[in-house]
């Protein structure tokens, strides 16, 4: 045992070193992003690898946060507000409607349940990118193209969420609901008052995934909107990166805006990370 410990000591140092190198590769781009967002345009272009801005400036951040000159080609505060509004509506809708449907599919014995569940599973397999033209088509036909309802309604349900919630409800002991029903509670009361509080970890998981998904959503908003007033941080940033500014590289500004897009989800992720460990894959693996 002791000889093995001795032999493994250098190996342990080596694997730590390798691990630190990999951690640097994973964290490095974010550090460079932060550093370069405080640089001047010329400094960022010439010394992209340097972690120390020379000279340091907050000009890019002032512009991104709407504190700089009013020539707002890129209205990031407005886009951030749009992101927030749309994400909150989508999250609330998904948490409520997905869990409602998930509960029915797990527990309520209604005619056609297998058919509905089959449809949910089938839509799981539909790849998102091939839906861009179809969804553009339908929101245009419904007259909600380039509007908040058009951005929110189609995203209000996701089949994955229904599936995850169904898995959570299946874990709840049946005796509990029977007891509630015997006590005279109606189906909705049983669901709302008794079962829902038990699957709180599932609801939190769903809320995190929904918010993250809505906040980071890009492709759908790209086809659902056209006016800058409806841009979210993702579509707005992409527009700026694709030359919406048309004045040089402006890398500090773009990097600061990218940081602004990253930070809210990052904060949420750090706060709730214990809920995200393995849960999100259980449904997929068990499927």
């Amino acid at each position: 045992m002791s000889s093995r410990a001795r032999r493994s000591a250098p190996r342990r140092v080596l694997s730590y070193a390798l691990l630190v190198v990999f951690a640097a590769i994973f964290v490095g781009p974010f550090l460079l992003q932060i550093a370069n967002s405080f640089k001047t345009d010329g400094d960022a272009t010439a010394n992209g690898l340097s972690l120390i801005p020379h000279p340091p400036t907050v000009a890019a951040w002032q512009e991104v946060l709407g504190l700089g000159n009013a020539a707002a080609v890129a209205d990031f505060p407005r886009w951030m507000l749009n992101s927030l509004i749309v994400s909150l509506f989508i999250t609330a809708g998904r948490v409520f409607l997905d869990s409602l449907a998930g509960y029915a599919l797990a527990r309520l014995d209604f005619r056609g349940r297998r058919l509905v569940f089959g449809l949910v599973v089938a839509t799981l397999a539909v790849p998102g990118v091939v839906l861009l033209i179809p969804q553009f088509l339908i929101i245009k036909q419904l007259g909600i193209f380039n509007s908040y309802p058009g951005m929110i309604l189609p995203m209000l349900i996701d089949a994955t969420g229904i599936y995850i919630m169904r898995q959570f409800f299946l874990q709840v002991p049946l005796a509990l609901e029977e007891a509630a029903r015997i006590d005279g509670a109606g189906t909705f009361t049983t669901y709302w008052r008794i079962v829902l509080p038990i699957v709180r970890p599932g609801l939190i998981t769903l809320a995190i995934l929904s918010f993250q998904g809505a906040w980071n959503q890009y492709a759908f908003f790209l086809v659902a909107t056209v006016s800058p007033q409806y841009f979210t941080l993702t579509t707005g940033l992409a527009n700026v990166v694709n030359g919406g500014l048309s004045a040089g590289n402006e890398f500090p500004l773009k990097l600061a805006a990218a940081m602004l897009t990253t930070v809210p989800v990052a904060i949420m992720f750090f706060v709730f990370q214990r809920y995200l460990r393995a849960n999100r894959f259980d449904a997929a693996v068990k499927g």
Partner: peptide, 29 residues
């Protein structure tokens, strides 16, 4: 009988959105 009614009430919002914004558009496209 109650479960039949409630089951459909519970899945209808989700089903309506899935049909309107997923199934119908695919057929349209």
């Amino acid at each position: 009988a109650g479960q039949n009614l409630h089951g459909w009430l519970f899945v209808t919002p989700a089903l309506a959105i899935l049909l309107l914004f997923l199934v119908v558009p695919i057929v349209l496209a």
